[in-house]
Write a protein that binds this DNA or RNA. Structure first.
Lengths: 111, 111
DNA sequence: TTATTTTATCGTATAAATGCGATAAACGAT
DNA sequence: ATCGTTTATCGCATTTATACGATAAAATAA
C-alpha cells in the first residue's frame, strides 16, 4: 500500500506535475520573484528577506534547481542563482497546449 | 519544530502556490484533461480510465474541487464534474503577471 | 596558518500527501 | 421495502515534504 504511481502516467503529465510541484510553495514563489526582479541573487540575500532559516532556504533552492527552474554557479564563498527562463516557457507552452486550446472548444460548463 | 509557515507570505503567493499544488500530481492533471475533453464527466468514467482505485480518484476529485479548479453537482446516484475555467484564467493571469512581465525586463541570465 | 564568512548537507521531528480497503450514504430500480 | 449501483468518507500504512539546529565544506581575510 501507499505506492506512488506517478510512473503510470504520461511523460507530459509527469513533467507538468513536476514543474507545478516546484512552485507549489509560497517560499519558492517568493524566491523566484526575488530572482526575477534582481536577475541574479546570492543565497544570503534571500535568507535575509524570507522568514526562514538558512538551511530551509537552501533546501528550497535545491528543490528549484533540481526541478530545473533555476541555475546556480559558485562565486567564491557565495552561490549565485538566477532563473532559467526556458523552463518557464516550456511550462507555459505545455500548460496552454493542454488547457488553453481545450477551453475554446468547450466554452460552456455543465455544472 | 516543523511548523508550516505559509501564512508568512503574501496572499498572491499563497494562491499561486495553492493552484500549483492542486495540479502537482499526474493523476490530477489526467483528470483535468479528461474533464476538458469531455466538458463533463461522472466519477465512474474517470475511475475506469485511471490506474487508481475509486477511493483514490474520489480523493483527487475532492482536492481539485477544494482548490476551486472543478465544480461538481449531484445527478442522482452519480456526481457530475466539470472544469472551472475561471480558476485557470486567474492562474494564468497571476502567473504571467508575476513572471511574464519580469522576463522582458531581464532577458539575460547571469549563470 | 588560522579565523571568518558563506553555503550545503546531515540528522531529526513533525506535518502533509498518497493509496487502498472497508464502509456509509444517496438514489434508482425492482 | 429491498436490492443494486454509484460516490464519499473513514481508518490505516507508507511515503514525502517542511523546518530547524548542528555541522561540514570551501573560499576569503587576517
Amino acid at each position: 500500500m501507499a505506492i506512488h504511481k506517478k510512473e503510470a502516467f504520461s511523460k507530459k503529465e509527469q513533467e507538468l506535475a513536476a514543474f507545478a510541484k516546484a512552485i507549489a510553495h509560497p517560499a519558492r514563489i517568493a524566491i523566484l520573484k526575488i530572482l526575477a526582479l534582481r536577475n541574479e541573487c546570492i543565497c544570503g540575500e534571500i535568507v535575509g528577506v524570507l522568514p526562514l532559516s538558512q538551511s530551509t532556504v537552501s533546501q528550497h533552492l535545491k528543490a528549484l534547481k533540481d526541478a530545473g527552474l533555476i541555475s546556480g554557479s559558485v562565486d567564491g564563498p557565495r552561490s549565485c542563482y538566477c532563473i532559467n527562463w526556458k523552463a518557464f516557457d516550456k511550462f507555459n507552452n505545455d500548460f496552454c497546449s493542454l488547457f488553453g486550446k481545450l477551453k475554446k472548444q468547450n466554452a460552456k460548463a455543465c455544472c
